[in-house]
Computed example of a mutant assay.
Amino acid sequence: MESNNLSRNDETDNDAKDSCANLKKSIPLINELFHVHCKIGKGTFSSVYLATLKSSNSPVHKKYALKHLIPTCHPDRIERELQCLQQMGGKDHIVGVELCLRNQGSIVFVMPYMRHDKFSEYVKDMTVEELKDYMRALLSAVRRVHQFNIIHRDVKPSNFLYDRTNKKYLLVDFGLAQQCSEYNAENLETMIGINERKTEIQSMKRKRSENLSFQSNSNITRNNVDSKCYCFGKPKVCVLCLTKPSQTAPRAGTPGFRAPEVLLKYPSQTLAIDIWACGVMMLCILSGTQVFFRSPDDCTALAEITTIFGSHKVQKCAQKLGKKVIFSENLPGIDIMSLCLKLRKRNKSMMHDRENSTCKVLPNSQYPMEAYHLLRKLLDLDYKTRITADQALSHPFLSS
Rank of each mutant, 00 (worst) to 15 (best):
D10Y: 07
D10V: 14
D13L: 15
D15F: 07
A16P: 00
A16V: 07
A16H: 09
K17Q: 13
D18H: 10
C20Q: 09
C20K: 04
N22M: 06
K24M: 11
K24H: 10
K25Q: 02
S26H: 07
I27M: 01
I27V: 09
I27G: 02
P28Q: 02
I30K: 00
N31H: 12
N31I: 03
N31C: 11
E32D: 08
E32G: 06
L33M: 12
L33I: 14
F34W: 12
V36H: 08
V36N: 06
V36G: 12
C38R: 14
C38Q: 15
I40V: 13
G41Q: 10
K42P: 01
G43S: 08
G43N: 07
G43W: 04
G43T: 08
T44E: 06
T44K: 12
T44F: 08
T44D: 07
F45G: 05
V48D: 04
T52I: 11
L53D: 05
L53W: 02
N57T: 11
S58A: 12
P59S: 01
P59H: 08
H61D: 06
K62L: 07
K63D: 01
K63C: 06
Y64R: 01
Y64K: 03
A65R: 04
A65D: 03
A65C: 09
K67N: 03
K67C: 04
H68W: 15
L69H: 13
L69N: 06
L69I: 13
L69V: 09
I70H: 13
P71S: 05
T72V: 00
C73H: 03
H74E: 15
P75F: 03
D76A: 11
D76S: 13
R77I: 15
R77L: 15
I78E: 11
I78C: 09
E79D: 10
E79G: 03
E81D: 02
L82V: 06
Q86R: 11
Q86C: 02
Q87P: 00
M88T: 04
G89W: 04
G89E: 00
G90H: 05
H93N: 15
I94C: 12
V95G: 05
V95E: 08
V95D: 03
G96K: 12
G96I: 11
V97T: 14
V97H: 05
L99E: 13
R102S: 15
N103W: 15
Q104T: 04
S106M: 02
I107A: 12
F109P: 00
V110S: 05
M111N: 13
Y113C: 09
M114F: 09
M114T: 02
R115D: 05
H116V: 04
H116F: 15
D117H: 05
D117V: 03
D117P: 00
K118Y: 14
F119K: 07
F119Q: 10
S120C: 12
E121P: 02
Y122W: 15
V123L: 01
K124I: 08
D125N: 11
V128H: 13
E129D: 14
E129V: 09
E129I: 13
L131D: 09
L131N: 04
Y134V: 07
Y134E: 01
R136A: 01
A137S: 14
A137G: 09
A137H: 00
